[in-house]
Amino acid sequence: MARVSQEHLDARRRQILAGAARCFARNGFHGTSMQDVLKEVGLSAGAVYRYFAGKDDLIAAIADEAFGGIRHAFEDAAEITPPPTPDVLLGRVLRTFLAGQLYGMERRTCAALIVQVWAEALRSDRLSTAFSDGYAGMRVGWAKLVEAYRAAGIMHADVSADDVARTMIATAQGFMVQEALFGGVEPEVLENGLRGLMSMGPQKIS
C-alpha cells in the first residue's frame, strides 16, 4: 500500500475543516450534525473520524486556527522596527483576516462564524479554556507591541501595557461583531476612527 504523504493528510484535514466551517456558518453549531459535515465534504465517516472525534473537535480546531492567525499577525508586527501604529496594525490584520483567509469564506460569513465560536465558549469548558489561553497569548503579544511603541518613542509610559492590550483586543472584537451583525463595516472605518482618537491630546483641567 502506498504511503500517504503528510501534505495529503494536511490537505484532507483542511478540507474537512473548511466544509465544517461552511456548515456551521449556515446553520449554527447546534443546527449542524456530523452527517451534514460528511455530506458537505463528500467523505465517508471513517475518513472524517480519522482526523476528528466529533463536532466538538471540529469547533475547537476552527477556534484554534482563528485565534492562531490573529495572534501570529500581532507577534510578527512586534518584530518590525518601528512597529506599525495600532490603527495601521489592526486595519492590516482585520483586512487580511476578513478577506477570506479563514477557509475561503466571504467576509461577513467569516465574522459571523467567529462570533458563533465566541458564544459557544460560554457553554463549552473545553472552548472556554482554549479561548482563555488564546486571549492570554494575544495580551502578551500586544504588551510586547506596547513596549516596542515606547522604545520607539511613540507611546507614553504612564499607562499599563496590559490595559492597552486588552483595549485593542476589544476594539478588534467589536469590529468583528459589527461586521457579523450588519455587514459592510470596512477596515478603513476602524483605521480612521482609531487615528482620530489617537490624535487627541490630554484634556486641560481648569
Rank of each mutant, 00 (worst) to 15 (best):
M1Q: 09
A2D: 11
E7G: 07
R14L: 07
Q15C: 03
Q15H: 14
L17C: 02
A20I: 02
C23H: 02
F24I: 07
F24D: 03
R26G: 07
F29W: 13
H30I: 12
S33N: 04
Q35L: 11
D36P: 07
L38I: 09
K39P: 04
E40N: 03
V41Q: 04
L43H: 06
L43Q: 04
S44E: 08
A45T: 15
Y49P: 06
F52N: 00
D57E: 13
I62E: 02
A66S: 06
G69C: 09
I70E: 08
A73P: 03
A77S: 05
E79D: 11
I80V: 09
P82H: 01
P86A: 01
D87K: 06
L90V: 00
L94D: 06
L94W: 09
L98V: 02
G100S: 03
R108M: 05
A112E: 11
L113G: 04
I114P: 00
I114Y: 11
V117I: 10
L122E: 13
S124R: 06
S128G: 11
S128N: 12
S132P: 10
G134L: 03
G134I: 00
V140T: 14
G141C: 03
W142Q: 09
W142A: 07
V146N: 03
E147L: 06
E147G: 07
A148L: 02
Y149R: 08
R150N: 06
I154W: 12
I154Q: 11
M155P: 01
H156I: 07
A157V: 14
S160V: 05
D162H: 13
A165T: 05
R166Y: 10
R166M: 09
M168Q: 14
T171Y: 13
A172N: 10
A172D: 09
A172Y: 04
A172W: 01
Q173Y: 12
F175H: 14
Q178V: 12
A180F: 05
L181K: 15
F182S: 11
F182N: 10
G183N: 04
E186V: 07
G193V: 11
G196S: 06
M198F: 14
Q203T: 12
I205R: 08
